[in-house]
Amino acid sequence: MQERLELHAEVPESLIGKRLDQALAELFSDYSRSRIKDWILAGHVQINQQVWDKPREKLMGGEQVLIQTRIEVQQQHKAQAMALDIQYEDEHILVLNKPADLVVHPGAGNSSGTLLNALLNHVPDIGAVPRAGIVHRLDKDTTGLMVVAKTIPAQTNLVEQLQAREISREYEAVVNGTMVAGGTVDEPIARHETRRTSMAVRIGGKPAVTHYRVIQKFRAHTHLRLKLETGRTHQIRVHMAHLHHPIVGDPLYGGRPRPPKSASDELRDTLRDFKRQALHAAQLELAHPISGEWLSWQAPLPQDMVDLLTILRADTKAHDQDWE
């Protein structure tokens, strides 16, 4: 649902000579510069009762500004009481540890029972914030830390931090195959040519960079720590599959289970029954969007990944090989 938005201001002397998009970003700092630029290009900005649709136009000072546009609100989604594992919360943001099997945003086949529905219940006013304050996502079955903006100014700042690659996100994963050392994957990602629900490394795709290092090696698997520079859809999953080391349990990119030779029935069963990607957002660091204070959170591995690693270690020890 969309809601009418009308903003008024007079250009002060301090903004004389500024470009239109720069001046409006300062006058209406609750909204991002990219959003304001979109409003200008769409003809939603009037200066002295005349439409200005060129972001680079210079201002002389004293002009009367009127913005008339519409913004998305979340009223069409229902608030639902759901348990949230909140790691931090103040009046501007909250940080939560997302469990597996929780969809972040309603979509086809998921109109309720999502994180967004839970947020509307936990913070009723968050419906006035675009996408209910969700500034980045985790895949349904990826666990771990997410930050949510509770106000428009916080959302604007967090989006700008993400775009500037200033938010640090680190993950842990268990992948198929034994990796010798860490490294970096710098490969563009785009929608798969034929499988429209999947992504792929493709020429002409959006830039995507993933750094990884080895935590522990097993006979046929590796425990990794990964850090994102960018935040493309399925980025870690696609990049690991591109290296021919897909994440254990990944239903889209992982393929069949790959137990080592002479694996125990317990290990074979664990790999076969691991029905989600073994991927966890373990650490999140950012500047508080209002105070600027640098904040950091860590979330321990979920129990299913702890159990998987325990069995992989036991398998390595049982076969008397030191892969660490």
Rank of each mutant, 00 (worst) to 15 (best):
D315R: 09
H136M: 07
T114M: 01
L224E: 00
A81C: 06
K217C: 11
R191A: 05
L59S: 05
Y253W: 03
V209W: 00
I152E: 15
S264Y: 07
E324R: 08
N110V: 00
A81R: 12
Q321P: 04
Q75H: 15
L279S: 00
V135P: 00
Y253M: 12
A25R: 04
T210P: 03
H234E: 11
G205Q: 08
A263S: 04
S111Q: 06
F274E: 05
L66S: 12
E172T: 15
I16D: 06
Q76V: 09
L312R: 00
H192I: 13
E26M: 13
Q161H: 09
R137Y: 09
Q2M: 13
A128Q: 13
R276Q: 14
V45E: 09
Q298Y: 11
W39N: 14
I189L: 02
R313P: 00
L158N: 07
V129F: 03
T233H: 03
K37H: 04
A278C: 08
L145V: 05
K150E: 03
L295S: 11
V209P: 01
H319L: 12
A281G: 05
S262D: 11
K37S: 06
N117P: 03
Q277N: 10
M305Y: 02
V209S: 08
D125M: 10
K140G: 04
S29Q: 02
Q75A: 12
L243F: 13
T142R: 03
K37I: 11
D250F: 11
K37F: 00
E166T: 12
W323Y: 11
L279T: 02
L138R: 01
Q2H: 06
G255M: 13
W297F: 07
G231A: 03
Q155M: 15
A79C: 12
S168Y: 01
V148L: 05
L145H: 02
D315N: 09
V180L: 15
Q161M: 14
L7D: 11
R131N: 12
L252N: 00
E13W: 03
D90I: 09
H234F: 08
Q298W: 06
L116H: 05
V65N: 04
E324W: 11
E6S: 12
K275M: 08
D90F: 04
L308Y: 05
L284T: 07
R196A: 12
S29T: 04
E26A: 13
L301P: 01
A132T: 04
D101A: 14
L119H: 04
G113K: 01
R35E: 07
A287Q: 09
H244A: 15
A200P: 05
